[in-house]
């Protein structure tokens, strides 16, 4: 599988809130969405296995878009994004992305793990200053960290960090929880990668390093470790970049 060329973690002005931490852990970076993303930690072959067991990956540079307001749902739907009727649910998009309906007035659009940002950038461009729509963009790109917690022990480590029941049987794929995780308000979206349990985790970017530390501490019991986005591509069969 072809991968983009490596770049330095701070080569671009947009930077992950965790780039130093990832760099110190031995990450190799590639450019996605105009920023450096950790693609692996020097063990690309074994990282998918780690991700099946217990791992966390930083996706912070990947494109995403938030929209608030009384007209948010209709406006985002009008941009070709498929959103169902239930709150606290995510809806899969044809390009591999997700649209999480957080409330009647709040939508979060996540790009696919490819990070091409096609849909997200299209929506951003479409909004401009259409104030009459009652839909207002929320800068989730800059304001939130985005991590993915994967593996069969993922529900167990969340049990140590948050009070919502995220077990496989009770928190189905595409379920959304808005809950404190280690006392940081977060959005949790279950989005399995193949048969591997996986959760998107988005929260206050200023607490990214704190949250990363909490996750690694909690997953120590299960020999959890950081993995690069390359491992997620491998698990998300057929959805890796060409």
């Amino acid at each position: 599988m072809a991968q983009p060329d490596s770049i330095g973690p701070a080569d671009r002005p947009r930077r992950s809130f965790l780039y130093r931490t990832l760099d110190e852990a031995g990450a190799r970076f590639v450019e996605i969405n105009g920023a450096a993303v950790a693609v692996d930690f020097g063990s690309a072959e074994t990282e998918p296995d780690a991700a099946r067991t217990m791992a966390v990956a930083d996706l912070s540079p990947l494109p995403r878009f938030g929209c608030n307001g009384r007209g948010a749902l209709e406006w985002v739907r009008g941009q070709g994004i498929s959103i169902g009727d239930a709150n606290n649910a995510a809806y899969a998009q044809p390009d591999g992305g997700l649209a999480a309906r957080l409330a009647d007035t709040e939508v979060l659009v996540l790009d696919s793990l490819r990070g091409s940002g096609t849909a997200v950038h299209r929506i951003e461009a479409a909004w401009s200053s259409d104030e009459a729509s009652g839909a207002w963009p929320v800068n989730r790109q800059a304001g939130s960290f985005w991590m993915m917690v994967t593996g069969r022990h993922a529900p167990a480590i969340f049990a140590k960090l948050c009070g919502v029941d995220l077990r496989r049987g009770t928190f189905p794929p595409y379920a959304v929880a808005q809950t404190p995780v280690a006392r940081v308000n977060c959005v949790v979206v279950r989005a399995d990668l193949g048969d591997t349990t996986a959760f998107h985790l988005l929260g206050d970017c200023a607490a990214a390093e704190y949250q990363w530390g909490c996750l690694l501490d909690a997953m120590r019991e299960f020999s959890g470790r950081p993995v690069g986005i390359g491992a997620l591509w491998r698990l998300d069969q057929g959805k890796s970049p060409a």
Binding site: R15, F17, K160, R183, A206, A207, E209, Y210, Q211
Partner: peptide, 10 residues
């Protein structure tokens, strides 16, 4: 385990 969030600026 003490959860004491620390916020850091960019």
């Amino acid at each position: 385990r003490a959860f004491d969030p620390v916020r850091r600026t960019p």
